[in-house]
Write a protein that binds this DNA or RNA. Structure first.
Length: 281
DNA sequence: AATGAAACCTGACAGC
DNA sequence: TGCTGTCAGGTTTCAT
């Protein structure tokens, strides 16, 4: 479920609820592929660390950590906890007596008494840690540009000349980090570009329009997500999420909201893609 | 180098 | 009710 706006919303919610708290202990499930770092390393970096801040980088949730100034040797050492939700990952903040959901893969106990739990039925999500050292100053960074802050020139430069369909390019996290299947389709609709169009065939003007559409769609979704979010974690996650009106995504066969032409669904690079055959060329 | 297809997983839902 | 098939908002890996 999570693309940039959802991850942004979740990260903001976590920031509100766990920033300043201290991690006391960590439990991890026995599903090794969930953990991108060695489980022992995850435990080592997380335990006794204070959560300075929770934020979003691409589709990742980043917890910035700092050692409590207690044991001298490790005091002040910084690290990060990185969470990728995959398709079905959820982050819960609950009291310890809440029943443990099926497919729970991590439980992080906090000094406040709360627990942060990572639940992920389909197991495409990943947990990792980064320990910051002098040679690794900045810590975790995304592979691609932040779609919300990249400017039009940079965007055009990034995409220019590629032979791949524009839909695939938008989903490529090494170009832009954070755009997923829904917002790719919605952006292309707003820009009037068919998803199968090769990037190389697009004019600068079209790319400029697409850049604006991507930012517009993401900004709207973030704004909507932020308004209804306060309790996302306690409930079953999906409740109360943004309800950005999808104009094409999932509307296969239904009339285009602009011209009434039935929306088409095709598969591009293995992902379902929706567009209006009349408004998009 | 760049592209597409397959693989990784479970659950929900439609149709019979 | 229960079975089968299809689909899912993501990423990595492997062949071409």
């Amino acid at each position: 479920m999570p693309e940039l706006p959802e991850v942004e919303t979740i990260a903001r919610g976590l920031q509100k609820r766990v920033a300043g708290d201290v991690i006391q202990s960590v439990w991890l499930s026995e599903k090794p592929q969930t953990f991108k770092s060695q489980p022992a390393e995850i435990v080592r970096v997380l335990e006794q660390a204070r959560i300075k801040m929770v934020r979003r980088v691409g589709k990742h949730i980043v917890f910035d950590l700092e050692r409590r100034a207690k044991g001298k040797r490790l005091a002040g050492q910084r690290g990060q906890w990185i969470v990728h939700l995959g398709m079905t990952g959820r982050m819960q903040v609950t009291s310890p007596d809440t029943e443990i959901a099926r497919h729970t893969h991590a439980i992080v106990k906090l000094a406040s008494g709360n627990e942060v739990r990572f639940v992920d039925p389909r197991r495409f999500g990943r947990l990792a840690v980064v320990s910051q050292s002098p040679t690794n100053e900045g810590g975790f960074t995304a592979a691609g540009d932040e779609p919300l802050t990249s400017n039009a020139e940079r965007f055009i430069e990034l995409f220019r000349g590629r032979k791949t369909p524009i839909k695939s390019a938008l989903l490529n996290q090494k170009l832009l980090s954070g755009v997923g299947n829904i917002y790719a389709d919605e952006s292309l609709f707003r820009a009037g570009i068919r998803p199968r169009r090769r990037v190389v065939s697009l004019t600068r003007e079209q790319l400029r329009k697409l850049h604006a559409a991507v930012q517009e769609v993401l900004h709207e979704a973030v704004a909507l997500g932020g308004s209804s979010i306060s309790d996302y974690v306690d409930a079953d996650g999906e409740e109360g999420f943004f309800q950005l009106q999808h104009r094409v995504y999932g509307r296969d066969g239904e009339p285009c909201l602009v011209c009434r032409t039935p929306i088409k669904r095709v598969v591009i690079a293995g992902r379902s893609s929706h567009y209006c055959p009349r408004c998009q060329t």
